[in-house]
Each structure stands twice: as structure tokens, then as C-alpha cells.
Design a protein around this nucleic acid. Structure first.
Lengths: 147, 147
DNA sequence: TTTAATGCAAACATTTTGCACCCTG
DNA sequence: CAGGGTGCAAAATGTTTGCATTAAA
């Protein structure tokens, strides 16, 4: 399940924050491009490219707010800037990142989730959330390489 | 097993790179502070603070080179800059990061390693390495909070 | 109407780079 | 002693912030 516009309004209202045009646009852009894991600049370009007038500063401010609200999460894909994805109901999940073409595929595994929780327990650590980056080569690039 | 100065020389030699003073210092600093996961600026401060004259630019250049050589790995601990740790023999491991005090504890688990490998297999993905960031609250901060 | 949010541009922090000089191999 | 490596300072990135203006509620 992915976060929806309804959740968005609810959360903002609960925090007494305004549901402005810019915020809605940024949020929807992230939700609707969940497969893309866009970064701040990409989000901005997609919006302005589509004719929407939103400043990059607002994109950043909104991203910070959405992350803090738990609607969106910030991911490190090994580049020099952050990427964003809608949080949905997944408390933790991983990314398969291709070292050759940069493609990112998500995965989610209850077993791993449980294991990490248990490892934390054993060390007195209370797990809130986690993120996994698995670097390697995607199917397409592998077949290309071996030919 | 942690990477040693011997590996360092070997790798540099294999790549026809010079084992300069600056490079040795940066490498040793990372190896000897494996528990600290220093960032570029911290490495630089530790060296200059100890009287060694190395520029921050060289620290960055060396870090890039060590990462590319596989002697050191770059970790994202949720801050706005990278941290570094010696790669050693661990092909993949995780970090328990305290959201309250920022302390980082490493863990390594063969079971998780196998699981991630298997998840990759199922998707035609050839795993090279992975990194896990688990955010939550460390023992110390938890007891502090509950008091 | 009131107050928070926006846009702009300037400020910041981190990392990269050009170039003259230096040191390793 | 040749060529890569270094330091320095300037530039490039990515992100944040102050302030006057605009728009939600």
C-alpha cells in the first residue's frame, strides 16, 4: 500500500500545516513515480517541465517536511545527492542497485525485517526503520556483459 | 579481518599508483579508527591535529582512490556527507544508527547476507556487496528516555 | 485577515578541479 | 629525473535560509 493524497491531507492537517499547491505537487510527483526514486532536482524538473511553477527551494522544504511526517522516505543510492520514495506501509525495504546502468529495483522481505529486529534486540537497540542498498549487476547488464 | 598496510601497498602497486605519505596516512587513519566511521573532514582534522601536513583535497582524492580499489568503503549514515570504513573481508554488513545520539554500531550476519543474495538471484541480480542502515535508539538513549 | 508558505537570491557545506611545485619510483 | 601526486584556492554541487510577497485557512 502506497501513501495517498488522503493520508497527505490528514497528516498535514494534524500538524497544522497548509496543504498548498506546491506541497501537493511534490507529494504526488513522488507517489506517481515510485519506480523512479527521483531526487530533488528531478522532481523540480518534472514539475516545471509540465508547466507547474514551483521553486527548487520549495521542493526541498517540502521534501524535508514529508520525510519528517513519515509520508516519504529519503534513500541513498550511492550518488552524491538524496533520492526520495513514498513510504507506504513498508516499514523497511531494500534496493537492488545496478552498478552498470544505475537501475534500482525495490524488494521487501519480512524475514530480513525480523532478523534485523532481532539483531537490534540482542544489542539493546530499538529499531525504528531500516534501509538496504545492495549493489551489483542487473539481469540486462549481465547478459550484455557476457555476450 | 581488516585490510592492512600490506594490502594497501600491493593494491597500489598493482594499479601503478604511488604509495605516498598522504595516502598512507589517510589509509591508516581509517583502519585504526574502524569503530568511528570518520568522514573526510574528521580524517583531515585527526591528521593535521596530530601534526601531519596533508591537505583536505588529498584526503578526498585518496578516499576516492581507496574506495575504487576496494580497500575502503563509503557509508551513508543519514548525514549530509559520506563516512568511511576499512573494507576488510566483510563483503556486506550493517549499521545500527542511533537517532538520538548518532552512535553507530556495526553488525554482520551471514544469514542476512545469504537472504539478500537469494533475493537477488530470484531477480536475475548478481550481488556484489550491500550495506544496511538500521535507524533506531541505542540502549543508552533508551534508558535515558524512559527515566 | 492572519499567518504560514513561497520565490528569489544569497549563504552554506561538501566535494572536485586547475595549476605550479614536489616527491616517489 | 620523469611523471604522477600535492597543496592551494577557486569552482562546482547540493541544500538551506532570510526576507519581501502571496495565498491558504
Amino acid at each position: 500500500m502506497t501513501a495517498e493524497l488522503g493520508d497527505f491531507r490528514e497528516v498535514l492537517h494534524a500538524r497544522k500545516l497548509k496543504a498548498t499547491r506546491a506541497r501537493r505537487l511534490v507529494f504526488q510527483e513522488i507517489v506517481s513515480s515510485s519506480d523512479i526514486h527521483p531526487n530533488a532536482s528531478e522532481i523540480h524538473q518534472r514539475l516545471t517541465g509540465r508547466g507547474e511553477r514551483v521553486s527548487l527551494a520549495s521542493v526541498y522544504r517540502t521534501l524535508g517536511l514529508l520525510v519528517k511526517s513519515g509520508l516519504v522516505s529519503q534513500v541513498d543510492l550511492g550518488e552524491d545527492h538524496s533520492h526520495y520514495e513514498s513510504e507506504g506501509a513498508k516499514a523497511g525495504h531494500g534496493h537492488l542497485i545496478c552498478l552498470s546502468c544505475g537501475a534500482v529495483k525495490e524488494f521487501s522481505d519480512a524475514h530480513i525485517h525480523r532478523l534485523i529486529g532481532r539483531i537490534g534486540d540482542g544489542r539493546g537497540f530499538e529499531l525504528d526503520r531500516f534501509s538496504i542498498q545492495a549493489f551489483g549487476y542487473c539481469e540486462r547488464c549481465r547478459t550484455k556483459r557476457s555476450r
